[in-house]
Design a protein around this nucleic acid. Structure first.
Lengths: 241, 241
DNA sequence: TCCTTTAGTGACTAATAGACACTTATATAT
DNA sequence: ATATATAAGTGTCTATTAGTCACTAAAGGA
Protein backbone atom coordinates (compact mmCIF):
# COMPACT_ATOMS: atom_id res chain seq x y z
CA UNK A 1 0.00 0.00 0.00
CA UNK A 2 1.26 3.46 -0.80
CA UNK A 3 -0.06 6.94 -0.90
CA UNK A 4 0.85 10.39 -2.17
CA UNK A 5 2.52 12.88 0.11
CA UNK A 6 3.00 16.56 -0.71
CA UNK A 7 6.50 17.54 0.40
CA UNK A 8 6.32 21.25 -0.34
CA UNK A 9 3.77 22.01 2.32
CA UNK A 10 4.97 19.39 4.70
CA UNK A 11 6.53 21.26 7.59
CA UNK A 12 7.39 20.25 10.15
CA UNK A 13 8.77 17.00 8.79
CA UNK A 14 6.50 14.42 7.31
CA UNK A 15 7.48 10.77 7.59
CA UNK A 16 7.19 8.53 4.54
CA UNK A 17 4.43 6.66 6.32
CA UNK A 18 2.37 9.83 6.32
CA UNK A 19 2.96 10.72 9.92
CA UNK A 20 3.94 14.30 10.66
CA UNK A 21 7.05 13.94 12.78
CA UNK A 22 8.29 16.93 14.76
CA UNK A 23 11.92 18.00 14.93
CA UNK A 24 13.60 16.16 17.82
CA UNK A 25 16.47 17.79 19.70
CA UNK A 26 18.32 17.17 22.95
CA UNK A 27 19.62 19.98 25.17
CA UNK A 28 21.63 19.91 28.39
CA UNK A 29 22.00 22.31 31.28
CA UNK A 30 25.57 21.61 32.38
CA UNK A 31 26.43 23.04 35.81
CA UNK A 32 29.79 23.57 37.41
CA UNK A 33 31.20 25.32 40.49
CA UNK A 34 34.08 27.71 39.96
CA UNK A 35 35.49 30.68 41.87
CA UNK A 36 32.67 30.41 44.41
CA UNK A 37 30.06 30.75 41.66
CA UNK A 38 27.53 28.44 40.12
CA UNK A 39 27.98 28.46 36.34
CA UNK A 40 26.41 26.82 33.33
CA UNK A 41 27.79 26.15 29.88
CA UNK A 42 26.32 28.22 27.06
CA UNK A 43 27.01 28.18 23.34
CA UNK A 44 26.79 31.17 21.02
CA UNK A 45 24.58 30.20 18.10
CA UNK A 46 26.06 30.94 14.68
CA UNK A 47 23.24 29.66 12.49
CA UNK A 48 19.57 30.54 12.14
CA UNK A 49 17.19 30.38 13.79
CA UNK A 50 18.18 32.52 16.76
CA UNK A 51 21.70 33.19 15.38
CA UNK A 52 23.75 35.42 17.71
CA UNK A 53 21.85 34.37 20.81
CA UNK A 54 23.20 32.07 23.51
CA UNK A 55 21.80 28.56 23.77
CA UNK A 56 22.22 25.31 25.65
CA UNK A 57 24.69 22.73 24.35
CA UNK A 58 22.60 20.30 22.34
CA UNK A 59 21.28 19.51 18.92
CA UNK A 60 19.25 17.27 16.71
CA UNK A 61 19.01 13.55 17.46
CA UNK A 62 20.82 11.66 14.72
CA UNK A 63 19.28 8.22 14.44
CA UNK A 64 22.17 7.09 12.25
CA UNK A 65 24.71 7.86 14.99
CA UNK A 66 23.04 7.88 18.40
CA UNK A 67 21.93 4.63 20.00
CA UNK A 68 19.63 6.43 22.42
CA UNK A 69 18.65 9.89 23.65
CA UNK A 70 21.32 10.05 26.31
CA UNK A 71 23.94 9.27 23.66
CA UNK A 72 22.87 12.41 21.82
CA UNK A 73 23.21 14.48 24.97
CA UNK A 74 26.64 13.01 25.67
CA UNK A 75 27.83 13.46 22.09
CA UNK A 76 26.92 17.15 22.13
CA UNK A 77 28.48 17.74 25.55
CA UNK A 78 31.73 15.98 24.66
CA UNK A 79 31.81 18.11 21.53
CA UNK A 80 31.74 21.31 23.59
CA UNK A 81 33.75 20.32 26.67
CA UNK A 82 36.03 17.55 25.41
CA UNK A 83 34.86 15.24 28.18
CA UNK A 84 31.77 13.36 29.33
CA UNK A 85 30.04 14.88 32.38
CA UNK A 86 30.31 12.93 35.64
CA UNK A 87 26.55 13.16 36.11
CA UNK A 88 23.78 13.25 33.53
CA UNK A 89 20.07 13.02 34.30
CA UNK A 90 16.94 13.62 32.29
CA UNK A 91 15.05 16.74 33.32
CA UNK A 92 11.95 17.17 31.18
CA UNK A 93 10.75 17.01 27.61
CA UNK A 94 9.17 20.07 26.08
CA UNK A 95 7.30 19.82 22.80
CA UNK A 96 4.87 22.20 21.18
CA UNK A 97 4.12 24.24 18.10
CA UNK A 98 5.51 27.58 19.25
CA UNK A 99 8.91 27.07 20.86
CA UNK A 100 10.79 26.94 17.54
CA UNK A 101 9.97 29.29 14.63
CA UNK A 102 10.40 26.36 12.25
CA UNK A 103 7.28 24.78 13.73
CA UNK A 104 6.35 21.87 16.01
CA UNK A 105 9.52 20.76 17.79
CA UNK A 106 10.53 18.67 20.76
CA UNK A 107 13.53 18.92 23.05
CA UNK A 108 14.51 16.31 25.59
CA UNK A 109 16.34 18.30 28.24
CA UNK A 110 19.04 16.90 30.53
CA UNK A 111 20.74 18.21 33.65
CA UNK A 112 24.48 17.56 33.86
CA UNK A 113 27.33 18.21 36.29
CA UNK A 114 31.08 18.37 35.85
CA UNK A 115 34.16 19.66 37.66
CA UNK A 116 35.30 22.95 36.18
CA UNK A 117 38.95 21.97 35.94
CA UNK A 118 38.09 18.84 33.96
CA UNK A 119 37.13 20.84 30.91
CA UNK A 120 38.55 24.31 31.55
CA UNK A 121 41.23 24.00 28.86
CA UNK A 122 38.92 22.72 26.12
CA UNK A 123 36.26 25.34 26.87
CA UNK A 124 38.81 28.15 26.94
CA UNK A 125 40.14 27.23 23.51
CA UNK A 126 36.75 27.22 21.79
CA UNK A 127 35.46 30.73 21.09
CA UNK A 128 31.72 30.06 20.93
CA UNK A 129 31.48 28.22 24.27
CA UNK A 130 31.51 29.92 27.68
CA UNK A 131 30.84 29.27 31.34
CA UNK A 132 28.31 31.86 32.51
CA UNK A 133 27.61 32.53 36.19
CA UNK A 134 23.92 32.01 36.94
CA UNK A 135 23.65 35.36 38.69
CA UNK A 136 24.96 37.18 35.60
CA UNK A 137 22.50 35.82 33.09
CA UNK A 138 19.74 38.41 33.38
CA UNK A 139 20.72 40.56 30.42
CA UNK A 140 21.86 37.74 28.17
CA UNK A 141 19.85 37.06 25.01
CA UNK A 142 18.91 33.38 25.10
CA UNK A 143 17.59 31.26 22.21
CA UNK A 144 14.20 29.54 22.10
CA UNK A 145 12.81 28.62 25.54
CA UNK A 146 16.25 27.93 26.96
CA UNK A 147 15.88 30.41 29.78
CA UNK A 148 12.90 28.41 31.04
CA UNK A 149 14.82 25.16 30.73
CA UNK A 150 17.66 26.63 32.77
CA UNK A 151 15.20 27.77 35.41
CA UNK A 152 13.73 24.28 35.63
CA UNK A 153 17.16 22.71 35.85
CA UNK A 154 18.05 25.13 38.62
CA UNK A 155 14.94 24.18 40.56
CA UNK A 156 15.75 20.49 40.09
CA UNK A 157 19.28 21.04 41.38
CA UNK A 158 17.87 22.94 44.32
CA UNK A 159 15.78 19.91 45.26
CA UNK A 160 18.82 17.68 44.88
CA UNK A 161 20.78 19.95 47.21
CA UNK A 162 18.05 19.63 49.83
CA UNK A 163 17.91 15.85 49.80
CA UNK A 164 21.23 14.58 48.46
CA UNK A 165 24.87 15.40 47.93
CA UNK A 166 24.59 14.85 44.22
CA UNK A 167 25.63 18.46 43.56
CA UNK A 168 29.09 17.26 44.63
CA UNK A 169 29.55 16.04 41.06
CA UNK A 170 30.03 19.70 40.11
CA UNK A 171 33.19 19.72 42.26
CA UNK A 172 36.63 18.22 41.62
CA UNK A 173 37.19 14.61 42.67
CA UNK A 174 38.61 15.78 46.00
CA UNK A 175 36.86 18.63 47.75
CA UNK A 176 36.36 20.10 51.21
CA UNK A 177 33.10 20.13 53.12
CA UNK A 178 33.31 23.92 53.07
CA UNK A 179 33.22 23.88 49.26
CA UNK A 180 30.34 21.41 49.18
CA UNK A 181 28.38 23.43 51.70
CA UNK A 182 28.89 26.66 49.79
CA UNK A 183 27.74 24.99 46.58
CA UNK A 184 24.63 23.76 48.37
CA UNK A 185 24.02 27.24 49.73
CA UNK A 186 24.20 28.70 46.24
CA UNK A 187 21.71 26.12 44.98
CA UNK A 188 19.34 26.44 47.91
CA UNK A 189 19.71 30.21 48.14
CA UNK A 190 20.09 30.19 51.89
CA UNK A 191 22.89 29.90 54.43
CA UNK A 192 23.11 26.47 56.06
CA UNK A 193 24.12 25.50 59.56
CA UNK A 194 27.61 24.09 59.39
CA UNK A 195 26.90 21.59 62.17
CA UNK A 196 23.79 20.17 60.55
CA UNK A 197 25.36 19.99 57.13
CA UNK A 198 28.41 18.06 58.32
CA UNK A 199 26.25 15.77 60.42
CA UNK A 200 24.15 14.73 57.45
CA UNK A 201 27.20 14.01 55.34
CA UNK A 202 28.82 11.93 58.06
CA UNK A 203 25.74 10.10 59.29
CA UNK A 204 24.79 8.88 55.86
CA UNK A 205 28.36 7.71 55.38
CA UNK A 206 28.30 9.24 51.95
CA UNK A 207 31.82 10.52 51.80
CA UNK A 208 35.24 9.10 52.40
CA UNK A 209 38.00 11.11 54.00
CA UNK A 210 41.10 10.58 51.96
CA UNK A 211 43.52 11.75 54.63
CA UNK A 212 44.92 14.71 52.75
CA UNK A 213 44.44 18.37 53.52
CA UNK A 214 44.13 21.59 51.57
CA UNK A 215 43.91 25.23 52.62
CA UNK A 216 43.85 28.74 51.25
CA UNK A 217 43.28 30.60 54.47
CA UNK A 218 42.78 29.34 58.01
CA UNK A 219 42.92 25.78 59.25
CA UNK A 220 43.48 23.11 56.57
CA UNK A 221 40.36 21.16 55.61
CA UNK A 222 39.98 17.43 55.15
CA UNK A 223 39.38 16.30 51.60
CA UNK A 224 36.38 14.20 50.68
CA UNK A 225 35.44 12.11 47.70
CA UNK A 226 31.98 11.08 46.44
CA UNK A 227 30.97 7.48 46.77
CA UNK A 228 28.92 6.02 44.00
CA UNK A 229 26.12 4.61 46.08
CA UNK A 230 23.51 6.15 48.34
CA UNK A 231 23.96 9.78 47.44
CA UNK A 232 20.69 10.81 48.96
CA UNK A 233 20.01 11.47 52.56
CA UNK A 234 16.96 12.40 54.47
CA UNK A 235 15.14 15.50 55.18
CA UNK A 236 16.31 19.02 55.99
CA UNK A 237 14.12 20.87 58.40
CA UNK A 238 13.39 24.55 58.24
CA UNK A 239 14.83 25.19 54.79
CA UNK A 240 11.55 26.01 53.13
CA UNK A 241 10.04 29.36 53.88
CA UNK B 1 5.67 18.64 -5.68
CA UNK B 2 4.58 15.25 -4.52
CA UNK B 3 5.94 11.76 -4.49
CA UNK B 4 4.92 8.21 -3.94
CA UNK B 5 6.07 6.52 -0.78
CA UNK B 6 6.02 2.86 0.05
CA UNK B 7 4.61 2.61 3.56
CA UNK B 8 5.62 -0.96 4.20
CA UNK B 9 9.37 -0.37 4.13
CA UNK B 10 9.54 3.22 5.32
CA UNK B 11 11.19 3.28 8.71
CA UNK B 12 12.33 5.43 10.30
CA UNK B 13 10.86 8.57 8.74
CA UNK B 14 12.85 11.07 6.77
CA UNK B 15 11.94 14.74 7.03
CA UNK B 16 11.80 16.96 3.93
CA UNK B 17 14.88 18.76 5.25
CA UNK B 18 16.81 15.50 5.13
CA UNK B 19 16.85 14.87 8.85
CA UNK B 20 15.97 11.36 9.95
CA UNK B 21 13.23 11.94 12.49
CA UNK B 22 12.29 9.12 14.85
CA UNK B 23 8.73 8.07 15.49
CA UNK B 24 7.37 10.15 18.38
CA UNK B 25 4.73 8.68 20.67
CA UNK B 26 3.21 9.56 24.03
CA UNK B 27 2.17 6.94 26.59
CA UNK B 28 0.50 7.27 29.98
CA UNK B 29 0.44 5.10 33.07
CA UNK B 30 -3.01 5.89 34.46
CA UNK B 31 -3.50 4.76 38.06
CA UNK B 32 -6.69 4.35 40.03
CA UNK B 33 -7.75 2.85 43.36
CA UNK B 34 -10.67 0.43 43.31
CA UNK B 35 -11.85 -2.38 45.56
CA UNK B 36 -8.79 -1.93 47.78
CA UNK B 37 -6.48 -2.49 44.82
CA UNK B 38 -4.12 -0.31 42.86
CA UNK B 39 -4.95 -0.61 39.17
CA UNK B 40 -3.68 0.78 35.90
CA UNK B 41 -5.44 1.18 32.58
CA UNK B 42 -4.26 -1.11 29.79
CA UNK B 43 -5.32 -1.35 26.16
CA UNK B 44 -5.33 -4.52 24.10
CA UNK B 45 -3.45 -3.80 20.87
CA UNK B 46 -5.28 -4.81 17.72
CA UNK B 47 -2.70 -3.73 15.14
CA UNK B 48 0.91 -4.63 14.48
CA UNK B 49 3.44 -4.35 15.89
CA UNK B 50 2.77 -6.24 19.10
CA UNK B 51 -0.85 -7.02 18.15
CA UNK B 52 -2.64 -9.04 20.82
CA UNK B 53 -0.44 -7.75 23.64
CA UNK B 54 -1.49 -5.23 26.27
CA UNK B 55 -0.10 -1.72 26.10
CA UNK B 56 -0.33 1.66 27.75
CA UNK B 57 -2.94 4.14 26.52
CA UNK B 58 -1.10 6.40 24.11
CA UNK B 59 -0.15 6.89 20.53
CA UNK B 60 1.63 8.95 17.96
CA UNK B 61 1.93 12.72 18.39
CA UNK B 62 -0.18 14.40 15.72
CA UNK B 63 1.31 17.82 15.02
CA UNK B 64 -1.79 18.78 13.05
CA UNK B 65 -4.04 18.24 16.08
CA UNK B 66 -2.01 18.48 19.29
CA UNK B 67 -0.75 21.84 20.50
CA UNK B 68 1.82 20.22 22.79
CA UNK B 69 2.94 16.86 24.19
CA UNK B 70 0.55 16.93 27.11
CA UNK B 71 -2.31 17.50 24.69
CA UNK B 72 -1.44 14.23 23.00
CA UNK B 73 -1.45 12.41 26.32
CA UNK B 74 -4.80 13.94 27.26
CA UNK B 75 -6.34 13.21 23.87
CA UNK B 76 -5.41 9.54 24.10
CA UNK B 77 -6.60 9.22 27.70
CA UNK B 78 -9.93 10.91 27.00
CA UNK B 79 -10.34 8.56 24.08
CA UNK B 80 -10.03 5.52 26.37
CA UNK B 81 -11.72 6.76 29.54
CA UNK B 82 -14.15 9.41 28.31
CA UNK B 83 -12.70 11.94 30.75
CA UNK B 84 -9.51 13.91 31.44
CA UNK B 85 -7.48 12.63 34.39
CA UNK B 86 -7.42 14.82 37.50
CA UNK B 87 -3.64 14.62 37.60
CA UNK B 88 -1.13 14.32 34.77
CA UNK B 89 2.63 14.60 35.14
CA UNK B 90 5.54 13.84 32.87
CA UNK B 91 7.55 10.80 33.95
CA UNK B 92 10.41 10.19 31.55
CA UNK B 93 11.22 10.07 27.87
CA UNK B 94 12.66 6.88 26.42
CA UNK B 95 14.16 6.85 22.95
CA UNK B 96 16.42 4.35 21.28
CA UNK B 97 16.85 2.06 18.31
CA UNK B 98 15.60 -1.16 19.86
CA UNK B 99 12.39 -0.52 21.76
CA UNK B 100 10.17 -0.63 18.67
CA UNK B 101 10.71 -3.22 15.90
CA UNK B 102 10.00 -0.50 13.35
CA UNK B 103 13.26 1.21 14.34
CA UNK B 104 14.40 4.28 16.29
CA UNK B 105 11.44 5.54 18.28
CA UNK B 106 10.75 7.86 21.19
CA UNK B 107 8.01 7.81 23.79
CA UNK B 108 7.27 10.62 26.20
CA UNK B 109 5.75 8.84 29.17
CA UNK B 110 3.28 10.41 31.60
CA UNK B 111 1.93 9.38 34.97
CA UNK B 112 -1.78 10.06 35.50
CA UNK B 113 -4.35 9.60 38.25
CA UNK B 114 -8.14 9.41 38.21
CA UNK B 115 -11.01 8.29 40.41
CA UNK B 116 -12.27 4.88 39.32
CA UNK B 117 -15.94 5.86 39.39
CA UNK B 118 -15.32 8.82 37.08
CA UNK B 119 -14.62 6.58 34.13
CA UNK B 120 -15.97 3.18 35.16
CA UNK B 121 -18.91 3.29 32.76
CA UNK B 122 -16.90 4.35 29.72
CA UNK B 123 -14.16 1.78 30.38
CA UNK B 124 -16.69 -1.01 30.94
CA UNK B 125 -18.38 -0.35 27.60
CA UNK B 126 -15.16 -0.50 25.56
CA UNK B 127 -13.97 -4.03 25.01
CA UNK B 128 -10.26 -3.43 24.42
CA UNK B 129 -9.69 -1.33 27.54
CA UNK B 130 -9.36 -2.73 31.06
CA UNK B 131 -8.30 -1.81 34.57
CA UNK B 132 -5.66 -4.31 35.67
CA UNK B 133 -4.58 -4.69 39.30
CA UNK B 134 -0.83 -4.12 39.62
CA UNK B 135 -0.37 -7.32 41.60
CA UNK B 136 -1.98 -9.37 38.82
CA UNK B 137 0.22 -8.23 35.98
CA UNK B 138 3.00 -10.80 36.19
CA UNK B 139 1.73 -13.18 33.54
CA UNK B 140 0.34 -10.54 31.20
CA UNK B 141 2.01 -10.11 27.82
CA UNK B 142 2.94 -6.44 27.51
CA UNK B 143 3.93 -4.56 24.36
CA UNK B 144 7.30 -2.86 23.76
CA UNK B 145 9.02 -1.66 26.94
CA UNK B 146 5.74 -0.86 28.64
CA UNK B 147 6.43 -3.11 31.62
CA UNK B 148 9.51 -1.02 32.40
CA UNK B 149 7.55 2.20 32.01
CA UNK B 150 4.94 0.91 34.45
CA UNK B 151 7.68 -0.03 36.92
CA UNK B 152 9.15 3.46 36.71
CA UNK B 153 5.73 5.04 37.13
CA UNK B 154 5.14 2.85 40.18
CA UNK B 155 8.44 3.95 41.71
CA UNK B 156 7.56 7.59 41.03
CA UNK B 157 4.17 7.16 42.70
CA UNK B 158 5.91 5.49 45.63
CA UNK B 159 8.05 8.57 46.11
CA UNK B 160 4.96 10.76 45.86
CA UNK B 161 3.28 8.68 48.55
CA UNK B 162 6.25 9.19 50.85
CA UNK B 163 6.37 12.96 50.53
CA UNK B 164 2.92 14.12 49.43
CA UNK B 165 -0.75 13.27 49.34
CA UNK B 166 -0.84 13.54 45.59
CA UNK B 167 -1.94 9.89 45.31
CA UNK B 168 -5.27 11.18 46.62
CA UNK B 169 -6.10 12.12 43.04
CA UNK B 170 -6.65 8.41 42.42
CA UNK B 171 -9.57 8.55 44.88
CA UNK B 172 -13.07 10.01 44.48
CA UNK B 173 -13.54 13.69 45.30
CA UNK B 174 -14.61 12.79 48.83
CA UNK B 175 -12.67 10.08 50.61
CA UNK B 176 -11.82 8.87 54.10
CA UNK B 177 -8.38 8.96 55.67
CA UNK B 178 -8.58 5.19 55.91
CA UNK B 179 -8.87 4.94 52.16
CA UNK B 180 -6.04 7.38 51.58
CA UNK B 181 -3.82 5.57 54.05
CA UNK B 182 -4.50 2.20 52.44
CA UNK B 183 -3.70 3.62 49.02
CA UNK B 184 -0.42 4.97 50.37
CA UNK B 185 0.33 1.60 51.94
CA UNK B 186 -0.19 -0.11 48.60
CA UNK B 187 2.15 2.35 46.89
CA UNK B 188 4.82 2.26 49.58
CA UNK B 189 4.50 -1.48 50.14
CA UNK B 190 4.47 -1.20 53.90
CA UNK B 191 1.93 -0.71 56.67
CA UNK B 192 1.87 2.84 58.04
CA UNK B 193 1.23 4.08 61.57
CA UNK B 194 -2.28 5.48 61.64
CA UNK B 195 -1.31 8.17 64.15
CA UNK B 196 1.62 9.46 62.11
CA UNK B 197 -0.30 9.41 58.87
CA UNK B 198 -3.22 11.40 60.22
CA UNK B 199 -0.87 13.84 61.91
CA UNK B 200 0.90 14.66 58.66
CA UNK B 201 -2.35 15.21 56.84
CA UNK B 202 -3.70 17.49 59.53
CA UNK B 203 -0.51 19.39 60.31
CA UNK B 204 0.08 20.34 56.72
CA UNK B 205 -3.54 21.50 56.52
CA UNK B 206 -3.78 19.71 53.20
CA UNK B 207 -7.30 18.44 53.49
CA UNK B 208 -10.66 19.90 54.32
CA UNK B 209 -13.22 18.02 56.32
CA UNK B 210 -16.53 18.41 54.55
CA UNK B 211 -18.66 17.49 57.55
CA UNK B 212 -20.22 14.38 56.07
CA UNK B 213 -19.63 10.79 57.09
CA UNK B 214 -19.47 7.44 55.38
CA UNK B 215 -19.10 3.89 56.67
CA UNK B 216 -19.23 0.28 55.58
CA UNK B 217 -18.33 -1.34 58.85
CA UNK B 218 -17.44 0.19 62.19
CA UNK B 219 -17.46 3.84 63.16
CA UNK B 220 -18.30 6.27 60.37
CA UNK B 221 -15.33 8.15 58.95
CA UNK B 222 -15.04 11.85 58.18
CA UNK B 223 -14.80 12.70 54.50
CA UNK B 224 -11.93 14.71 53.14
CA UNK B 225 -11.31 16.57 49.91
CA UNK B 226 -8.00 17.49 48.26
CA UNK B 227 -6.98 21.10 48.21
CA UNK B 228 -5.20 22.33 45.14
CA UNK B 229 -2.22 23.89 46.82
CA UNK B 230 0.60 22.52 48.93
CA UNK B 231 0.07 18.84 48.36
CA UNK B 232 3.48 17.91 49.62
CA UNK B 233 4.53 17.48 53.19
CA UNK B 234 7.73 16.62 54.84
CA UNK B 235 9.60 13.54 55.57
CA UNK B 236 8.51 10.10 56.73
CA UNK B 237 10.97 8.40 59.00
CA UNK B 238 11.70 4.74 59.00
CA UNK B 239 9.95 3.88 55.77
CA UNK B 240 13.05 2.98 53.83
CA UNK B 241 14.62 -0.35 54.57
C1' DT C 1 53.02 36.82 70.21
C1' DC C 2 48.72 38.09 68.79
C1' DC C 3 45.19 38.46 65.34
C1' DT C 4 42.55 36.72 61.61
C1' DT C 5 40.57 33.08 59.25
C1' DT C 6 38.51 28.80 58.39
C1' DA C 7 37.83 23.84 60.10
C1' DG C 8 35.75 21.09 63.11
C1' DT C 9 33.24 19.66 67.82
C1' DG C 10 30.29 19.66 72.26
C1' DA C 11 26.20 19.99 74.07
C1' DC C 12 21.71 21.72 74.85
C1' DT C 13 17.03 22.67 72.79
C1' DA C 14 13.21 22.14 69.63
C1' DA C 15 10.56 19.66 66.49
C1' DT C 16 8.69 15.69 64.65
C1' DA C 17 7.92 10.70 63.88
C1' DG C 18 7.10 6.01 66.04
C1' DA C 19 4.61 3.17 68.98
C1' DC C 20 0.66 1.61 71.14
C1' DA C 21 -2.95 1.58 74.24
C1' DC C 22 -7.07 3.81 74.72
C1' DT C 23 -11.85 5.78 73.61
C1' DT C 24 -15.71 6.46 70.23
C1' DA C 25 -19.30 5.28 67.05
C1' DT C 26 -21.58 2.40 64.15
C1' DA C 27 -23.73 -2.44 62.45
C1' DT C 28 -25.07 -6.89 63.49
C1' DA C 29 -25.80 -11.07 65.98
C1' DT C 30 -27.82 -13.19 70.08
C1' DA D 1 -31.44 -4.88 75.28
C1' DT D 2 -26.85 -6.42 75.41
C1' DA D 3 -22.71 -8.10 73.60
C1' DT D 4 -19.45 -8.32 69.96
C1' DA D 5 -16.98 -7.02 65.97
C1' DT D 6 -15.02 -3.47 63.36
C1' DA D 7 -13.04 0.55 62.02
C1' DA D 8 -12.34 5.72 63.31
C1' DG D 9 -9.98 8.67 65.90
C1' DT D 10 -7.02 10.39 70.28
C1' DG D 11 -3.54 10.74 74.35
C1' DT D 12 0.81 10.42 75.40
C1' DC D 13 5.29 8.77 76.01
C1' DT D 14 9.70 7.75 73.66
C1' DA D 15 13.20 8.04 70.12
C1' DT D 16 15.43 10.37 66.64
C1' DT D 17 17.14 14.10 64.30
C1' DA D 18 17.75 19.00 63.15
C1' DG D 19 18.75 23.84 64.96
C1' DT D 20 21.62 26.76 67.55
C1' DC D 21 25.70 28.57 69.08
C1' DA D 22 29.60 28.75 71.71
C1' DC D 23 33.67 26.49 71.93
C1' DT D 24 38.39 24.53 70.41
C1' DA D 25 41.92 23.61 66.63
C1' DA D 26 45.18 24.68 63.10
C1' DA D 27 47.05 27.27 59.86
C1' DG D 28 49.16 32.18 57.87
C1' DG D 29 50.52 36.80 58.43
C1' DA D 30 51.30 41.35 60.93
Amino acid sequence: MSRVVDESTAAPGQRPDGILSPLLTVDSVLFTYHERLLKILLVKRSVEPEAGKWGLPGGIVDVAVDSDLQATALRKLVDKTGIAPTYLDQLETIGDRLRDPRGWSVTVCYTALIAHQACAYHVDTVSDVRWIALNKMRHLRLAFDHRELIKKAQERMRQRALYSILPGYALPELFTLGELQHLHELLIGKALQKRSFRRRIEQAGLLVDSGQKRQEQGRPAALYRLRNKSLSYRFVRNLEG
